[in-house]
Amino acid sequence: MWQLVLLKNLLKGPATEAFPFGEATTPAAYRGRVAFDPSACTACRTCQYVCAAGAIHFEERPDGLRFTLWHNSCVFCGMCQHYCVAKAIHLTTDWHLSHEQARKYEMVEEGWVPFRPCLQCGELMLPATPPLMRLAYRGDSKEIEALRHLCPKCRQTRAAGRNS
């Protein structure tokens, strides 16, 4: 019976993919290199909290936050992506992560999340992203967009002024 299998295999040729001489199939769900989008990040740091490998690091500076993810620590579990409400972090299908030992410190994903001045008082703060504002206020309007550029204090003052 196994002779039949053998014959079939001989006729069919190798069952393996021909990589690197041919294309290797990569499914869309593949968890590979991590991509970070600083424009969507609200620096809630949930990704850092859920990262089992300790691969994610936020460094707070006077004018913003520096995001760093070490691919050599990352275990590609995708928890950061799952828990990121702002959808600022996701795993791409890029699995080309082999590199020379000398380049090990370059295997990082970095991002700069700048603070912006409050439109009212000028204090530096991190504005919420439009998707998050839509989530919080369940809608979209010019008023909501204006609130986005105010620091929490000025937002309070404005809301109180409107109600009185």
Partner: peptide, 29 residues
Amino acid sequence: DTLFMHVMETREIMQDVKETIFGNRMDLA
């Protein structure tokens, strides 16, 4: 080893299932 390879080849289909649906061959997350 012919049979070994044959069974592993069959198993490889399930490995592809894991990679396609979950994103990894071993750790499904």
